[in-house]
């Protein structure tokens, strides 16, 4: 079937089987490899993208189900050559090591800050609790999100 999804603001169309998972549609049909996957059971969250602004596990959503919706991926975080404060925060606070969970973590952070610009550490912990990081022990991810909350304006200015 033909599937059209708005990805990072651009309508993108590709031919895919109905069973195509959104993560595979993004990676294989559209060639956007920034979204990863790490499990089969919706536990790890490496595949998190934003659908209509909300973090969603793209391994547990059919691409067909995203038709007509807005999907935002890691490739859409940087805008007009400016890094998102979340991206900057992850670099500043050493919020990533192997980088595999990072796209999903950053997108969740972006959604959190959009709805709650000044979250507490506990709110950040809850927000990322559906996503596994095997490298950082989470502490620096939390610091990275907080950095973005505290420096958001100066980065985007």
């Amino acid at each position: 079937m033909q599937i059209t999804i708005t990805v990072n603001g651009e309508p993108r169309t590709a031919e895919a089987e109905p069973r195509t998972l959104l993560v595979h549609f993004l990676r294989d049909n559209l060639g956007m490899k920034g979204t990863h996957w790490g499990c089969d059971t919706s536990n790890c969250g490496a595949c998190v993208v934003l659908v209509d602004g909300e973090p969603v596990k793209s391994c547990t959503m059919l691409a067909a189900m995203a038709e007509g919706h807005e999907v935002r991926t890691v490739e859409g975080l940087e805008r007009d050559g400016h890094l998102d404060p979340v991206q900057q925060g992850f670099m500043e606070e050493h919020g990533l090591q192997c980088g595999f969970c990072t796209p999903g973590m950053m997108l969740t952070a972006r959604a959190l800050l959009d709805s709650n610009p000044n979250p507490t550490d506990d709110e950040i912990r809850v927000a990322i609790s559906g996503q596994i990081c095997r490298c950082t022990g989470y502490k620096n991810i939390i610091k990275s999100v907080r950095w973005a909350a505290e420096h958001g304006e100066e980065v985007t200015a």
């Binding site: 890691v74 490739e75 975080l77 991206q87």
Partner: peptide, 21 residues
Amino acid sequence: LKRKEDPRFIRGQGHYVDDVT
């Protein structure tokens, strides 16, 4: 020192085995 590998990872430009096509 901030990491030299980070700029690619935070842009989703890491290149893992499953990204090889």
